[in-house]
């Protein structure tokens, strides 16, 4: 009983983590399913056919590749812009700083339907043709705020004396950034970019407004939901998740190993 009580919090924590992963496990399991009928909802029979033929359904791989392209470009641009904003907000004092902070916060406080609807209203008023570019513009817009918040946190955790020390040691403002600020903030930027990529790749609500007839991976899934989502979609989603999880967990273990080794050698 005492044992249970002392471990209770840990047990609850693990159960919550399990809860987070149950639907993902369902997706992974169903990717090996050979569904009965069109809808891949309940387990029928083990099959590798989807994994063996990932692009076997018309349009699925095109939409998948399009989503990756958009996510890569959007993340790259949003990360550059977002990092610049974070630098300005943390390292400089200037008029309008409060307003800039609010402008960054507002998109995160606006429901996605409203973001999507307002963008579409603008696109329609300007008579912009909907497609790749309008999706890309939207993704950069909603990703920037998340990047700013993540990089800002990292910058605020950095000792301002390190930059002063660099200046004192003959580094020009650019060299200070290049040799001190940037390397120290880089892990934060990479983390932010990873999150940005995930948000962009997985976005449906805003993309659905901005896309016209262009089909991204989430839009493909939404469209297919009515007539049954192909098993290939489950396999591709499982693949992305597995790659991301293995990548981050391995990265985590490597960096903590290195830290422990450093600690042991001192």
């Amino acid at each position: 009983m005492a044992w249970l009580r002392s471990k209770l919090l840990g047990i609850v924590a693990v159960l919550v983590l399990v809860y987070l992963f149950v639907p993902i496990a369902v997706v992974a399991v169903l990717s090996f399913n050979d569904p009965e009928g069109k809808f891949n909802i309940s387990w029928n029979e083990f099959s590798l056919s989807a994994w063996g033929n990932l692009c076997g359904v018309a349009g699925v791989c095109q939409s998948f590749i399009l989503s990756i392209e958009i996510a890569l470009i959007a993340t790259l641009i949003a990360t550059v812009f977002g990092t610049m904003i974070a630098l300005a907000l943390v390292r400089y004092r200037f008029r309008g700083r409060g307003a800039a902070n609010s402008l960054i916060f507002l998109p995160m406080a606006t429901p996605e339907v409203v973001l999507g609807a307002s963008l579409l209203a603008l696109y329609l008023n300007l008579r912009l043709p909907l497609g790749f570019w309008t999706i890309l513009i939207a993704h950069i817009m909603f990703t920037i705020s998340f990047i700013v918040v993540a990089v800002k946190a990292r910058l605020q955790g950095m000792d301002p004396r390190l930059e002063e020390a660099a200046q004192d040691l003959y580094a020009s403002p650019w060299q200070t950034f290049r040799f001190v600020t940037f390397p120290l903030v880089l892990p934060g930027i990479l983390g932010a970019a990873l999150l940005g990529f995930a948000l962009s790749f997985d976005d449906f609500i805003i993309s659905n407004f901005a896309s016209g007839t262009t089909v991204t991976f989430p839009i493909f899934i939404w469209g297919a939901a009515q007539r049954g989502i192909p098993v290939q979609v489950y396999a591709l989603a499982t693949l992305v998740f597995a790659l991301a999880l293995v990548g981050t967990v391995v990265g985590q273990i490597v960096s903590s190993r290195r830290r422990r080794k450093l600690a042991a050698s001192s």
Partner: peptide, 17 residues
Amino acid sequence: KAYKRPVNTVFQSYALF
């Protein structure tokens, strides 16, 4: 500018990179 002065500093709590 700080980076052009013939002056160097040992910072409080060192500020090593």
